[in-house]
């Protein structure tokens, strides 16, 4: 694990096994109420965490802050030892190589085939060609797409496309997997398949954070559930449930 920055402004000592630390984080945009308001959160290595909440509760802002796409207005965020308030622009790529990200809309490159989409992630981090040829088939086998490596993206079902996105997120062996509504565009069967794959990945040691609206999955999987509302955490429970706020 890389530790590029000292944690100067966090008073409490961050335990070694804590991979994500948010201390009183506020994120305000130019208009309206803050999207996040004084959020404090600690996630340990190897945890599987659901983040749930209605639209506008601050879930997406939280993911963007963890990716260092946004900078907090106030408070401190430390991910894998990187202080995301003070990280230099030139160090962001190196930081992001520790994360895998999966989006609701897959964000695959439609003009490339399955193999190329996954290999693309390895090319970007400048993995030698020999290793790419070894790693990509292996990760495609993990997500049950070994036979479809030559297929074009538009020849795949939604579930298959999300598995390609998952393979792309995992091929660089990230310490943390962030999934923003990964089952939002999938039918129940494909949704379960994706969640099982994520659980399997988590069992292998990767910290998994899933932002979702899928009540059935959250309630069935018995994982840590963080519930957000209007920019604050209102519930944080081990083996929690998706509480209907209405």
């Amino acid at each position: 694990m890389e530790r590029g920055y000292r944690r100067k402004r966090i008073n409490r000592q961050i335990p070694e096994d804590e991979v994500i630390t948010l201390e009183n984080v506020t994120k305000s945009y130019s208009t309206g109420a803050p999207a996040l308001n004084g959020v404090t959160l600690h996630i340990k290595r190897g945890e599987f965490v659901f983040i749930v909440g209605d639209s506008g509760s601050g879930k997406s802002t939280l993911i963007k802050l963890l990716l260092r796409e946004l900078v907090p207005t106030d408070g401190e965020i430390t991910v894998l030892g990187y202080n995301l308030r003070r990280i230099k622009h030139s160090k962001i790529p190196k930081f992001r190589r520790n994360l895998g990200i999966v989006f609701q809309d897959f964000r695959l490159l439609k003009d490339r085939n399955v193999y190329e989409n996954v290999a693309f992630a390895q090319r970007i981090v400048q993995t030698p060609s020999r290793e790419i040829k070894r790693n990509v088939p292996s990760i495609l086998a993990t997500v049950n797409l070994a036979g479809k490596y030559k297929s074009k993206i538009n020849q795949l079902s939604g579930g298959e496309q999300q598995r390609v996105a998952l393979a792309r997120a995992l091929v660089n062996r990230p310490a943390i997997l962030l999934a923003d509504e990964p089952t939002g565009n999938l039918d129940p069967n494909n949704s379960w398949e994706i969640m099982k794959l994520m659980e399997q990945i988590n069992e292998n040691g990767t910290t998994v954070i899933v932002v979702t609206h899928n009540r059935e999955i959250v309630n069935a999987m018995k994982k840590r559930v963080i519930t957000m509302k209007k920019g604050v955490i209102i519930e944080d429970e081990e083996e929690g449930m998706y509480i209907d706020e209405d």
Binding site: P93, R96, L99, L109, F120, I124, V125
Partner: peptide, 10 residues
Amino acid sequence: NIMKYIGATD
């Protein structure tokens, strides 16, 4: 965007 999220340098 995808390249940047994955960790590509500018």
